[in-house]
């Protein structure tokens, strides 16, 4: 790949936004338009968009518990072959293993509890820190993770 194109592929920034579900719209638009510019597939763009929305909503509602005084940090890295997004809230954290499988039993009929499952279904890597107030997600270019044709979690 030419050196100038490789440079164009790379993007790295961090931002801090308020605990407001509206705040993610601008961040999302920046990330999504950037991915389209450097020809990530529609499936990749959809997956990153979905995971970002779900992780941010979790940080606002369950992490910072809608406290307007608390902020959310978003770190973004895009390279030639992958997208990495980290989201950190100021909440007390949680244990991801305590979140039940939303596909099983009565959980299927519950209105909530699908956000983390979708993040894990659409991203190649989803890791929480020990406290549970920071999530690090990676999606590789042309990943075979949940696309419009298949899912590794099905």
């Amino acid at each position: 790949m030419p050196e100038d194109l490789t440079f164009k592929m790379q993007e790295n920034w961090s931002t801090i936004v308020p605990s407001d579900t509206l705040a993610i719209a601008v961040v999302c638009e920046r990330i999504i338009s950037g991915l389209k510019e450097v020809d990530f597939s529609e499936d990749d763009v959809f997956a990153v968009h979905l995971a970002l929305e779900e992780a941010f909503i979790n940080a606002v509602k369950h992490g910072n518990r809608l406290d307007p005084a608390k902020k959310i940090q978003i770190e973004y890295t895009r390279s030639e072959d992958k997208v990495q997004i980290s989201i950190t809230d100021e909440g007390e954290g949680f244990n991801p293993s305590d979140v039940p499988d939303p596909r099983v039993g009565d959980n299927l009929y519950k209105a909530d509890g699908r956000g983390i499952f979708l993040m894990q279904s659409y991203m190649d890597e989803v890791k929480f820190n020990e406290r549970g107030n920071h999530v690090d997600m990676v999606r590789y270019r042309c990943s075979r993770k949940a696309s419009s044709g298949q899912s590794s979690k099905e």
Partner: peptide, 14 residues
């Protein structure tokens, strides 16, 4: 793409 979300979450069952 959205239908895939329904399939993954098994909401196609309900």
């Amino acid at each position: 793409k959205i239908l895939q979300i329904f399939k993954i979450t098994r909401l196609t069952n309900i």
